[in-house]
Measured scan of single mutants.
Amino acid sequence: KRPMNAFIVWSRDQRRKMALENPRMRNSEISKQLGYQWKMLTEAEKWPFFQEAQKLQAMHREKYPNYK
């Protein structure tokens, strides 16, 4: 399994919040909304999620050194 990228790190919590706030919203619509919201974030707002993704990638490399 691949390490999470910055968008996935960010969207994990956002998806839960959105699903709780909009229980009738379909998963496909939630995904569209999340994509739009991510695009609207500034680079500074995205930065912590890129840092977290880099940490996860480093841990993944250490744990699975022969992963493609």
Score class of each variant (00 low, 15 high):
residue 1 K to L: 03
residue 1 K to Y: 12
residue 1 K to T: 10
residue 1 K to F: 08
residue 2 R to F: 11
residue 2 R to D: 14
residue 2 R to N: 11
residue 3 P to H: 13
residue 3 P to V: 08
residue 3 P to C: 12
residue 3 P to D: 15
residue 3 P to N: 14
residue 4 M to T: 15
residue 4 M to L: 07
residue 4 M to K: 04
residue 4 M to S: 05
residue 5 N to F: 02
residue 5 N to S: 14
residue 5 N to D: 15
residue 6 A to R: 05
residue 6 A to E: 04
residue 6 A to K: 01
residue 6 A to F: 02
residue 6 A to M: 00
residue 6 A to I: 00
residue 7 F to G: 09
residue 7 F to K: 01
residue 8 I to Y: 11
residue 8 I to L: 12
residue 8 I to M: 14
residue 8 I to K: 11
residue 9 V to S: 04
residue 9 V to E: 07
residue 9 V to P: 00
residue 9 V to W: 07
residue 9 V to L: 15
residue 10 W to A: 04
residue 10 W to Y: 07
residue 10 W to V: 02
residue 10 W to Q: 08
residue 10 W to R: 02
residue 11 S to D: 06
residue 11 S to E: 09
residue 11 S to H: 01
residue 11 S to N: 02
residue 13 D to A: 15
residue 13 D to M: 08
residue 13 D to E: 12
residue 13 D to N: 14
residue 13 D to K: 03
residue 13 D to F: 02
residue 13 D to R: 00
residue 14 Q to R: 09
residue 14 Q to S: 01
residue 15 R to Y: 15
residue 15 R to D: 11
residue 15 R to P: 03
residue 15 R to F: 08
residue 15 R to A: 05
residue 17 K to A: 00
residue 17 K to G: 02
residue 17 K to S: 02
residue 18 M to K: 03
residue 18 M to I: 06
residue 19 A to C: 06
residue 19 A to I: 11
residue 19 A to L: 14
residue 19 A to R: 13
residue 20 L to G: 11
residue 20 L to E: 15
residue 20 L to A: 14
residue 20 L to W: 05
residue 20 L to V: 10
residue 21 E to D: 11
residue 22 N to V: 05
residue 22 N to A: 00
residue 22 N to L: 03
residue 22 N to S: 03
residue 22 N to H: 15
residue 23 P to H: 03
residue 23 P to R: 02
residue 24 R to G: 15
residue 24 R to F: 05
residue 24 R to W: 09
residue 24 R to L: 09
residue 24 R to M: 14
residue 25 M to W: 09
residue 25 M to Q: 06
residue 25 M to C: 03
residue 26 R to W: 04
residue 26 R to T: 15
residue 26 R to Q: 13
residue 26 R to M: 14
residue 26 R to H: 10
residue 27 N to G: 07
residue 27 N to L: 08
residue 27 N to K: 07
residue 27 N to H: 13
residue 27 N to M: 10
residue 27 N to S: 10
residue 28 S to T: 04
residue 28 S to I: 09
residue 28 S to C: 00
residue 29 E to M: 06
residue 29 E to V: 02
residue 29 E to I: 12
residue 29 E to N: 04
residue 30 I to A: 02
residue 30 I to P: 00
residue 30 I to Y: 03
residue 30 I to M: 09
residue 30 I to W: 02
residue 31 S to D: 15
residue 31 S to Y: 13
residue 31 S to E: 15
residue 31 S to L: 14
residue 31 S to R: 06
residue 31 S to F: 13
residue 31 S to M: 13
residue 32 K to V: 07
residue 32 K to W: 00
residue 32 K to C: 01
residue 33 Q to V: 12
residue 33 Q to E: 12
residue 33 Q to R: 09
residue 33 Q to H: 08
residue 34 L to Y: 03
residue 34 L to R: 00
residue 35 G to P: 04
residue 35 G to V: 12
residue 35 G to C: 14
residue 35 G to I: 13
residue 35 G to N: 08
residue 36 Y to T: 09
residue 36 Y to L: 14
residue 36 Y to I: 07
residue 37 Q to L: 06
residue 37 Q to F: 11
residue 37 Q to S: 04
residue 37 Q to D: 09
residue 37 Q to W: 03
residue 38 W to I: 01
residue 41 L to Q: 03
residue 41 L to P: 01
residue 41 L to S: 07
residue 41 L to A: 01
residue 41 L to H: 03
residue 41 L to D: 02
residue 42 T to P: 11
residue 42 T to K: 04
residue 42 T to G: 01
residue 43 E to I: 06
residue 44 A to I: 05
residue 44 A to F: 03
residue 44 A to C: 05
residue 45 E to D: 10
residue 45 E to P: 00
residue 45 E to T: 01
residue 46 K to M: 01
residue 46 K to F: 01
residue 46 K to Q: 06
residue 46 K to G: 06
residue 46 K to T: 04
residue 47 W to P: 02
residue 47 W to E: 15
residue 47 W to A: 15
residue 47 W to G: 10
residue 47 W to F: 12
residue 47 W to M: 14
residue 47 W to Q: 15
residue 47 W to L: 14
residue 48 P to R: 02
residue 48 P to N: 06
residue 49 F to W: 14
residue 49 F to E: 04
residue 49 F to K: 00
residue 49 F to M: 00
residue 50 F to H: 15
residue 50 F to N: 10
residue 50 F to G: 07
residue 51 Q to D: 11
residue 51 Q to S: 08
residue 51 Q to T: 04
residue 51 Q to I: 09
residue 51 Q to K: 09
residue 52 E to C: 01
residue 52 E to P: 01
residue 52 E to N: 06
residue 52 E to S: 03
residue 52 E to W: 04
residue 52 E to M: 00
residue 52 E to H: 08
residue 53 A to L: 04
residue 53 A to S: 05
residue 53 A to V: 02
residue 53 A to Q: 09
residue 53 A to F: 06
residue 53 A to W: 03
residue 54 Q to W: 03
residue 54 Q to R: 11
residue 54 Q to D: 11
residue 54 Q to F: 12
residue 54 Q to G: 06
residue 55 K to W: 01
residue 55 K to E: 08
residue 55 K to Y: 08
residue 55 K to V: 05
residue 55 K to M: 10
residue 55 K to Q: 07
residue 55 K to N: 12
residue 55 K to F: 04
residue 55 K to D: 10
residue 55 K to H: 08
residue 56 L to W: 05
residue 56 L to G: 06
residue 56 L to Y: 14
residue 56 L to V: 06
residue 56 L to D: 04
residue 56 L to P: 07
residue 57 Q to E: 14
residue 57 Q to P: 02
residue 57 Q to W: 11
residue 57 Q to K: 04
residue 57 Q to I: 04
residue 57 Q to L: 05
residue 57 Q to H: 05
residue 57 Q to Y: 08
residue 58 A to R: 10
residue 58 A to L: 08
residue 58 A to S: 10
residue 58 A to Y: 08
residue 58 A to K: 13
residue 59 M to S: 10
residue 59 M to D: 11
residue 59 M to G: 10
residue 59 M to P: 14
residue 60 H to T: 08
residue 60 H to S: 13
residue 60 H to P: 12
residue 60 H to A: 10
residue 61 R to H: 11
residue 61 R to D: 15
residue 61 R to W: 07
residue 61 R to K: 14
residue 61 R to V: 10
residue 61 R to E: 15
residue 61 R to N: 07
residue 62 E to Y: 13
residue 62 E to H: 03
residue 62 E to S: 09
residue 63 K to V: 11
residue 63 K to T: 12
residue 63 K to D: 14
residue 63 K to W: 06
residue 63 K to L: 12
residue 63 K to S: 11
residue 64 Y to M: 09
residue 64 Y to V: 13
residue 64 Y to F: 11
residue 64 Y to L: 13
residue 65 P to F: 08
residue 65 P to N: 14
residue 65 P to C: 14
residue 65 P to S: 14
residue 66 N to L: 09
residue 66 N to F: 03
residue 66 N to G: 12
residue 66 N to A: 15
residue 66 N to T: 06
residue 67 Y to N: 14
residue 67 Y to Q: 14
residue 67 Y to R: 14
residue 67 Y to T: 15
residue 67 Y to E: 15
residue 67 Y to K: 13
residue 67 Y to V: 15
residue 68 K to S: 02
residue 68 K to T: 13
residue 68 K to W: 07
